[in-house]
Amino acid sequence: MQQMKAIGGYEEIILLGALLFLLSFVLVSSTTLRVWQRVGLYWLWGALAGFALYSDLLIAPYVLTAGLLLLFRWRTLLAWAMWIVLFGLSL
Rank of each mutant, 00 (worst) to 15 (best):
51 F>Q: 12
38 R>L: 05
49 A>V: 03
33 L>A: 09
54 Y>F: 14
4 M>R: 12
13 I>D: 03
30 S>Q: 15
55 S>V: 15
41 L>P: 01
2 Q>I: 10
69 L>A: 12
50 G>A: 07
28 V>T: 10
31 T>C: 09
60 A>N: 05
13 I>R: 04
4 M>S: 09
1 M>G: 08
19 L>H: 14
7 I>H: 13
85 V>Y: 05
14 I>H: 09
82 M>S: 09
47 A>C: 04
17 G>M: 07
68 L>I: 09
47 A>M: 04
84 I>S: 03
36 W>S: 14
40 G>T: 06
42 Y>K: 06
82 M>Y: 14
3 Q>K: 14
64 L>E: 05
89 L>A: 04
72 F>R: 07
87 F>Y: 03
21 F>M: 08
6 A>E: 12
1 M>A: 11
74 W>Y: 09
55 S>T: 15
66 A>I: 03
9 G>E: 08
7 I>T: 15
80 W>A: 10
45 W>V: 00
46 G>D: 03
44 L>A: 12
41 L>D: 06
40 G>N: 06
24 S>M: 09
77 L>R: 09
10 Y>T: 12
62 Y>V: 13
4 M>V: 14
66 A>E: 02
55 S>Q: 15
79 A>S: 15
5 K>D: 09
40 G>Y: 02
49 A>E: 01
28 V>P: 01
87 F>W: 06
51 F>Y: 14
68 L>W: 08
68 L>F: 04
54 Y>M: 12
59 I>M: 03
71 L>S: 02
63 V>K: 02
88 G>L: 01
57 L>I: 10
13 I>K: 08
19 L>N: 13
8 G>K: 15
91 L>H: 14
42 Y>H: 08
79 A>L: 15
36 W>E: 13
